[in-house]
Amino acid sequence: MSGEFRFLEDVALADAAFEASGDSPSELFKAAAQAVIETMVNPHTVSPTWQRVIEHQAPEIATLLFDWLSDIVYLKDAHGVVFREATAVVSEDRPHGGWKLRGTLTGEPIDPARHELRADVKAVTKHLYDVRHDEGREGGRWTARVVLDV
């Protein structure tokens, strides 16, 4: 099974919640980013003319994911873009302890005439925020629950 996400309906009445998962932290981060992207726009209507590389370190993987998703929200407003897709490489930050991320976001400047716009995400919240690793065969499964304020 690779990375995937599904929107949760009964978690946030006025907002948007999702659960993302992957066989590795990298897959989880890519799937969670895609959930944020698809809350804002239909990504099939967005061309990959704009790209941004994002690097972060954090002592905990939950903080790293929170910062990564918050960057998507920030870039949407600060650069006036919507996104098509994300890639993420997450690994343990051995010299410092904790985790590090190198991610990319592709998209293009917002054009309401071409983009199927959805909700303007205000923030990634800590409400019911959870990142967990279920140990199992072949490295287990990484899962995150995230509530977005729209």
Binding site: A14, Y74, D77, A78, G80, L117, A119, D120, K122, V150
Partner: peptide, 18 residues
Amino acid sequence: DHAVERGISQLGTLGSGN
């Protein structure tokens, strides 16, 4: 700076949601 960058060009806009 992040807050300024998000808001500086949005004066006079409605937003979305409700």
